[in-house]
Design a protein around this nucleic acid. Structure first.
Lengths: 317, 317
DNA sequence: CTGTTAGCGCCTTCAC
DNA sequence: GTGAAGGCGCTAACAG
């Protein structure tokens, strides 16, 4: 292993000069600095991160902690990872993955947290380093989230603009703020334009949505659009319609929400509100790094709300 | 920050005794050890990983390097991550994510590599730490891979056993060993049983497969099964069949390969050879850790080939 | 069994 | 501008 010392000897300077050439180049004579740089290249010198961390108390490592079993984790986290990773790389930080049951090995300069439940907050509070959440929270921590209200408001408006006259909101059967935001977005859009509408909440699975359509088919006149709180529900709904002989998109419209997986896979492409996950990942990383550089009081909670974009496809006319 | 020293003082011993209580408990009197443990608890002592790494030259960090743009990365890597992460956690190692353009920050004890191209091998060779590949390689590095031959052999046999009398292999249009293995698996199964068969290679997209069926529909008599080299192709094929009025699974069978995403999403479930990605991730981690503990020569290349399992669903009878 | 000494590689502080 | 000394937190090696 090549150390600072090795470089110093070869360059005929003290190791301090080498250290300075790296960390405070302006304090070293140009001539010396370039010759030191050259020696570092020749020797393939790589600073020892552990030694740096030990003395500087900064690790240049960010931990992403996912409070869910990785096994059941949505694959779309991959896009999030990409965003976080891209941004961290730009600033020469490393990304370390952890789960709630991870053995905590090694320090870090900050955390990005996602999938937190109520019982996990005790752990969060005890953290010494800055924290950014992925997803809304009411505990005053900075967070990045998607604009659930806007997403459903806009997709509903879109359905109406395409001439569908009866709207059904297919929500997810959970008691979470994000779900209420989506519901409210739908309600507001519907109220404004005065079309007829109904709401239902289902478990977030394709087949549940399909069964729902099967059982309630009589309730849906032609010219109905289903505005769904997830793409899984959207796909299930579309299937149910087809099974009943309904025509998509001519007589029935379907709009999903999330838009991560399906574009690559599903054969019939679903119109969907697409969360820009890569952007959201980058935003979370950026926010965290800024908190690390400028430690601020917990008073002013920073909320970064990112809008989804409608991606139109074959399930709406 | 609580250090060894703090614990030592509070427990009225030297810091070495505390260090030993942690790393070599058997060398410390039971009584002393328990009292030290208690003090550590009280003080919430956490060993400083940087200091440990510095002195022991072991970081307990494993890097997963994905040689693809994260942006385009298959979401199924998430399952791989889960497997790797689970296994590493069991052994108290941390997982660090890197991409080819990552700034190399910090050391690690070993690498798991995936998505490598020819031009990346120079980088790999210069690594000091043990390496395990995800996916076959001919450079002599240990690797974990799925058994492509077996997967297609078995799915083909299955199709035949279900009474389909004409078989079509829908391969991926790439010049890679894994593709030839799949093709050979198909050929062998077909030859053994003497059914009629044909092969085609397509770009790995749903719609390409659908178009293919559309254009060649006349070639496919009833009782044809399509054995596909990916689930995307499988879905596209199934769609094509349906569009031509073919009945799946009664008159036409479709079998995919991969089986990661779709079970959660697609409404019509595809019969598919499912790669146990979580298991493969764990295997890669296990192999790497074993290489770290017992450094061996590069002579005997360890190959871990993991079999896929058929997951039968609605696209075959 | 337990304590003392020394040093891992780097950076801060203080001399020159 | 540059160098020397000291110490970050921990552990291996040697004393006792």
């Amino acid at each position: 292993m090549v150390t600072l010392n090795d470089v110093a000897e070869r360059a005929n300077v003290s190791k301090m000069t080498v250290s300075r050439a790296i960390n405070h180049p302006e304090q070293v004579r140009d001539e010396l600095r370039t010759s030191i740089m050259q020696v570092m290249q020749e020797l393939h010198y790589q600073p020892n991160a552990a030694a740096r961390a030990l003395v500087s108390r900064s690790t240049r490592v960010i931990k992403l902690t996912i409070f869910e079993d990785m096994d059941t984790t949505e694959p779309y986290y991959m896009m999030l990872l990409a965003g976080i990773s891209n941004e961290l790389n730009r600033h020469q930080y490393a990304l370390q993955l952890a789960t709630s049951n991870s053995y905590q090995v090694g320090e870090c300069d900050g955390y990005i947290l996602t999938g937190i439940r109520q019982k996990d907050y005790a752990w969060v509070e005890q953290l010494q380093q800055p924290v950014v959440f992925f997803g809304r929270n009411q505990q005053g921590y900075d967070y990045v989230d998607t604009d659930n209200y806007q997403a459903l408001y806009e997709s509903t408006r879109y359905a109406i603009s395409r001439g569908y006259e009866h709207l059904v909101f297919v929500g997810i059967d959970v008691d979470e703020p994000f779900e209420y935001d989506r519901e409210t977005g739908f309600r507001d859009a519907v109220t404004e334009s005065g079309v007829s509408a109904q709401l239902v909440k289902l478990a977030n699975h394709c087949h549940v949505a399909t069964d729902y359509v099967q059982q309630h088919w009589a309730e849906f006149p032609k010219n109905t659009a289903f505005v769904c709180a997830s793409d899984r529900l959207g796909i299930g709904i579309e299937d149910g319609i087809t099974l009943n002989g309904g025509k998509v998109p001519d007589d029935y419209g379907v709009i999903g929400f999330d838009g991560v997986l399906l574009n690559q896979i599903a054969s019939k492409r679903l119109t969907t509100m697409q969360q820009p996950l890569e952007v959201m990942g980058r935003a979370a990383a950026k926010l965290l790094l800024s908190n690390i550089q400028h430690p601020h009081e917990r008073q002013d909670q920073e909320k970064i709300i990112i809008k989804s974009r409608l991606s139109t496809a074959e399930s709406t006319r």
